[in-house]
């Protein structure tokens, strides 16, 4: 681990030229009200009379909405003296198999810290390799055999163990309990949407995982306009949509505040995949499965109530999910050398 100040990429290395999109450091690309991720209006798949915009979180420097929480959690640890000069040689450990790990690994590395990701063995090798590619050390834990309902899995236990037993080397941001996760969205995602829609936003559609996104942006937007509807979309139970949780699984998150959510829609999880494919083919939006699910939720509300100006948080793109997409849409994976 290498947290000397001269090794650290700063986030204010120079004033970015946002018009010309010139940045002195990749950290300057991190989103803010002044530098929001794009909103793109859907042209073909929207029920008549409604307006839906997708917020393209895959345009973040490390490819997903999780850059926001990861950055806020790292900065928070630095500000509280838990990382950085006050704790030389200390890095982060997090149980994560997905986007948070990737964002944390890349951002920690920019700031000169090590990162250890603890990943359950069922996670595809591609993702483990991606984490290593981004500079993380990866520990793979055995998946629980007939686990106890509600019990912590091996990955959470192992990550906690590192933080407890080797506190000189590791601190655990813990995205499921860390208020900085929600604060990231209160500070950036909420204000961005408000500015980008000139305050005309009526609905925001988002998924529930750590619940940081929903809680944070709702806190900000509700203050601007208490009538903004925050609609959470979740997959049906028994789903395999990466990164999302069904409400029955939400007890792991300490960031869930039901009073901020107007409605929770449950969508058959298979639609995550079919809608993602449609978004790519019909709208040119290379949306991942969780975005497919969110779109289906927004589409249903548009059909039912009409949506004045809806914003859908599209968490990440489909490139990391080719094997999941092939599993659910078998036609993607059939190739015949001799031609069909």
């Amino acid at each position: 681990m290498h947290s000397s100040p001269e090794n650290r990429v700063r986030s204010d290395a120079g004033r970015p030229d946002l018009d010309a999109r010139v940045f002195e450091s990749v950290l300057d690309m991190l989103p803010s009200e002044a530098n929001p991720t794009p909103l793109v209006r859907l042209q073909r798949l929207v029920p008549p009379g409604s307006t839906l915009y997708a917020k393209l979180e895959w345009m973040n420097p490390f490819g997903s909405v999780k850059d926001r929480a990861a950055w806020e959690m790292l900065r928070d640890l630095e500000e509280r003296g838990q990382l950085g000069e006050a704790k030389p040689g200390r890095g982060v450990v997090e149980p994560t198999s997905g986007n948070t790990g990737l964002s944390l690994a890349a951002l920690a590395s920019m700031r000169g810290y090590g990162m250890r990701a603890v990943v359950p063995s069922k996670v595809p090798d591609e993702k483990k390799a991606l984490l290593r590619l981004a500079g993380a050390e990866v520990d793979v834990t055995t998946d629980a055999l007939c686990p106890l309902p509600g019990s912590e899995d091996g990955a959470i236990g192992l990550a906690r163990t590192y933080a407890r037993a080797q506190g000189d080397k590791y601190v655990m941001p813990n995205q499921y309990e860390n208020q900085a996760n929600a604060r990231a969205h209160e500070r950036t995602t909420g204000p961005e949407i408000w500015r980008q829609t000139a305050g005309r936003v009526t609905h925001v559609f988002t998924a529930l995982g750590t619940v940081g996104t929903a809680t944070g942006l709702a806190r900000y937007l509700r203050k601007q306009n208490p009538d903004v509807k925050i609609i959470a979309v979740q997959p049906s139970p028994g789903h395999d949509v990466p990164g999302l949780r069904n409400v029955s699984e939400l007890s792991v998150s300490k960031l869930f505040d039901p009073s901020l959510i107007s409605e929770i829609l449950e969508i058959p999880h298979e639609l995550a995949y079919t809608r993602a494919a449609e978004l790519f083919r019909r709208e040119g939006l290379r949306a991942g499965p969780s975005s497919g699910l969110i779109f289906e939720g927004a589409r249903r509300v548009a059909e039912r109530d009409g949506v004045g100006l809806g914003v859908m948080i599209f968490c990440d793109d489909v490139f990391k999910y080719v094997s999941s997409m092939r599993k659910h849409l078998p036609e993607l994976g059939k190739f015949n050398v001799e031609g069909e």
Binding site: D139, T141, T142, L145, G154, G157, L158, T161, Y162, R164, A165, Q166
Partner: peptide
Amino acid sequence: DVDPKQYHAGH
């Protein structure tokens, strides 16, 4: 442990 890595990380 089922997973001996747990002990090595801390005990």
